[in-house]
Design a protein around this nucleic acid. Structure first.
Length: 479
RNA sequence: GGGCGCCUAGCUCAAUUGGCAGAGCAACGGACUCUUAAUCCGUUGGUUGAAGGUUCGAUUCCUUCGGCGCUCACCA
């Protein structure tokens, strides 16, 4: 480039860094801040492309639409006295033609100190190149930010899994697939909220730090509040707080936020994960099956463009009504000789049935013994009015008609406490205030939790939960 | 936590039976005012994850450790 900053070739990481640092100093000597302040940008690249992408070169020649854009230089092709640079912002990518005779000597020297990875602003008219590409003629170029570290390789991108997770910013800069995955995740979250908002649900926030462990079967993280000298647990579920709100008159509530479970990490589990829980008074678990079908059909369509979603070689169909089967019946179909007790039933279900449930399937009527917060079935109190939704062999949602009988709930809690005393680390605590709330009166209510990360995996065709969590938990980076 | 696998230049990857650590991209110098992974000429860049061991000689074989991935267990 125009300015020689160092006679020695720079190629190791340290040397590349120092060469770029030298360019930053050279910029500063020219009066150009290498890490500039906010600079007004009028146009979004995607909107420029949308507004003018259909016009011919001749039309642009007449109109000369002036644009003002800014972005990261993601590619550069230099010809000595001119160059093409590809600029990317949040909305898209476009190339700019930088010419010495257009820009002027001094500004072109500044341009000579730019690298791929730097941020610049460009102003000038649009035109079409000989090959027809929509291009900005850089009549003004403002240097915005120097990147001291190089971007990953331009063709193969960044594929090292550990680097992609630890330095997600590099993954996002380098891999369009990663950008699209997270765009979809955010669209999914938006779509879920919009769906429930439209049905009169209110989004609420309940505590993340709990004095008791409840709402799910899981081992908690513990922490401590100094001023109160109180041990607290990071919540494993918001369930009991949300039902307190229904008692208080918020008949339709949801909370879409993080839960924390102190358990193993896998392609399906991250210690902190996002779940939506929602509660609807005067509904039953059967109402929620219908709501869930509608919700997933809507969300899948909004996020992926259709209700039939490709996932790891299968097509998941969220368009048709989902299959419904009781746990007992599902087990009977694959393992007719399974013993009648709850533990054997659940074990057979998890081992034999779960992996086979590829298309969306509601499994209903879970044993009361493993459903301490769910209402018993009126006809058979051994089971509860509960369902879990399975897709691609995984649990995606869990819902039930809520147990609103304070007497029964006291007994269920007592059984949990007894299990905990016997060594069940995932058993719940006895929540006396929750009993008090039920005694004030919880109207008949149904509630559901949907694993947002797992749903995001399905809608982005991602095999690992880490692919849909921006910063998955990893071991601390070794020195 | 158990089992299996991987770790080589900034990035993506090679390296015969154990025999001088290489390529492309990026970078640096030069040419080049319409490129699209620009092209052409030239130049660099390495504690082969770490520490030991075997060997005349280790990227290669062995041990330990670290990180990551897959998987099993646990869970959503």
């Amino acid at each position: 480039m125009a300015e020689k900053t160092d006679d020695a070739p720079a190629t190791s990481e340290q040397e590349i860094y120092e060469a770029r640092l030298a360019k930053a100093r050279a910029l500063r000597e020219k009066g150009v801040p290498p890490w500039g302040n906010g600079h007004p940008v009028r146009d979004a690249i995607g909107e420029v492309a949308a507004a003018h992408g259909g016009k011919t070169g001749e039309a642009l020649e007449v109109e000369k639409p002036a644009v003002s854009i800014a972005g990261r230089i993601v590619a550069a092709r230099s010809f000595g006295k001119a160059a093409f640079i590809a600029l990317r912002d949040r909305t898209g990518q476009i190339q700019a033609h930088v010419r010495r005779d257009v820009l002027g000597e001094a500004a072109f020297e500044v341009f000579g100190l730019t690298d791929v990875g730097d941020f610049v602003a460009v102003e000038g008219p649009l035109f079409r190149t000989r090959t027809g590409e929509l291009t900005v003629r850089a009549e003004k170029l403002t240097f915005l930010t120097k990147a001291l570290r190089p971007l990953p390789e331009k063709w193969h991108g960044l594929s090292d899994v550990e680097t992609r997770y630890r330095q997600r910013y590099l993954d996002l800069v380098a891999n369009e697939r990663a950008r699209e995955t997270f765009r979809r995740r955010f669209a999914l979250v938006r779509a879920v909220r919009a769906f429930l908002d439209a049905r009169g649900f209110v989004e609420v926030e309940t505590p993340m730090m709990h004095p008791l462990v409840s709402g799910a079967a899981a081992r908690p993280f513990t922490t401590h509040h100094n001023a109160l000298d109180a041990d607290l647990y990071l919540r494993i579920a918001p369930e009991l707080y949300l039902k307190r709100l229904v008692v208080g008159g918020f008949e339709r509530v949801y909370e879409l936020n993080r839960n924390f479970r102190n358990e193993g990490i896998s392609t399906q589990h991250n210690p902190e994960f996002t779940m939506i829980e929602f509660y609807q008074a005067h509904a039953t678990y059967e109402d929620l099956m219908e709501l869930t079908e509608e919700l997933l059909r809507r969300v899948a369509t909004e996020v992926t463009g259709g209700a039939r979603v490709p996932y790891q070689g299968e097509i998941l169909d969220f368009g048709a009504p989902f299959r419904r089967v009781t746990m007992t019946e599902a087990v009977r179909q694959v393992a007719p000789e399974t013993a009648a007790d709850d533990a054997a039933l659940v074990a057979a279900f998890e081992e034999e049935v779960e992996p086979t449930l590829v298309q969306p399937t509601f499994v209903t009527q879970f044993p009361t013994s493993i459903s301490p917060l769910a209402r018993r079935n009126d006809a058979d109190p051994r089971f509860t009015d509960r369902f879990e939704l399975y897709v691609a062999g995984r649990e995606i949602a869990n819902a039930f008609s809520e147990l609103n009988d304070p007497i029964d709930q006291q007994e269920r809690f007592a059984r949990q406490v007894e299990a905990k005393r016997r060594g069940d680390e995932e058993a719940m605590d006895y929540d006396a205030d929750y009993i008090r709330a039920l005694e004030v009166g919880l109207p008949p209510t149904a509630g559901e939790g949907i694993g947002i990360d797992r749903l995001a995996m399905l809608l982005t065709d991602s095999p690992s939960i880490r692919d849909v969590i921006l910063f998955p938990l990893l071991k601390p980076e070794p020195k």
